[in-house]
């Protein structure tokens, strides 16, 4: 006995991928080949690159431990930049996100708030950093401002969306008691969005820690500067040390923020 006799000779597999799925997979494959050709991929170049890569790895180990003070000042500056940028970003995003919530505020206000947030998101932190370097000079200040703008773009958008997703019934009940607008926000809106807000804020803190290394490459302070100059000097031992330190600090940062979330009960 087999399925063939049950369905008049045709066996169909229940999990056959739909036409759409197969079409998309095919299209992606075709695209990959096309794009590779556009980028002038050449196999010999790739292979010789692998060889150079092996050499590079060899030069990175053992890591260079001698330049401790440069490493230390750079990392501390990066961390300070991340902290200040996150704090400033959070402080500005709270009211901005509130103003951007369409279920709480009238349309012109939300439109303006969302436009500001979208503008902050649209440019890459590195480009923003270049502009701030031109405006306030080299150093950490430019980096902090650049990262702050990025933070506003991220937290502001997600915070406004979180507020728009709250249950209106809970807010209605608080309004019915005659509470002022501020009290309605405090007791009706805030408890519903607080945990998500803390999540965004801690994610952005980690993200700023990572990005603070990047803005240094264009002169906006932090360990990025030391990293870039190490590359240019072909000092790969030091590059390895810096990268390892960065990864370590970020992992510690993530652990720390997880504990932070637990203390604030989210």
């Amino acid at each position: 006995m087999s399925g063939a006799t049950l369905s008049s000779g045709r066996i169909s597999t229940p999990f056959r991928a739909s036409a759409l799925a197969r079409g998309v997979s095919g299209a992606l494959l075709v695209y990959t080949v096309y794009a590779l050709s556009q980028l002038n991929f050449s196999w010999p170049r790739f292979v010789s690159g692998l060889d150079r890569g092996a050499h590079l790895l060899a030069r990175m180990f053992p890591p260079d431990m001698t330049k401790g003070d440069i490493l230390w000042t750079g990392m501390v500056e990066s961390m300070q930049m991340a902290v200040l940028a996150s704090v400033l970003g959070i402080v500005i995003s709270l009211p901005l996100g509130l103003l951007g919530a369409r279920n709480l505020m009238p349309q012109p206000v939300t439109w303006l708030a969302r436009a500001v947030v979208a503008a902050c998101r649209s440019l890459h932190p590195v480009i923003v950093a270049i502009f701030f370097v031109k405006a306030v000079g080299f150093g950490a200040m430019a980096g902090i401002l650049a990262l702050m703008v990025g933070s506003i773009g991220f937290i502001g958008k997600l915070f406004a969306e979180a507020i728009e997703e709250i249950s209106p019934k809970q807010v209605e009940a608080v309004r019915a008691t005659g509470a002022s607008f501020a009290n309605v926000i405090l007791f009706g809106v805030a408890p519903q969005v607080l945990s998500r807000f803390v999540g965004f804020a801690t994610y952005q803190l980690d993200s700023n820690l990572r990005n603070s290394t990047m803005v240094g490459i264009v002169g906006a302070g932090g360990i990025g500067g030391a990293l870039f100059s190490a590359f240019q000097r072909f000092d790969y031992g030091f590059v390895c040390t810096i990268l390892a330190t960065i990864v370590l600090i970020i992992v510690l940062g993530e652990l720390l923020t997880n504990q932070l979330k637990k203390v604030f009960h989210v």
Binding site: S167, E172, A176, T177
Partner: peptide, 17 residues
Amino acid sequence: RRQIGMVFQEYNLVERL
């Protein structure tokens, strides 16, 4: 509004408080 109390069909308590 303070003088008028309201009880709702779906209780409308603030769940996380």
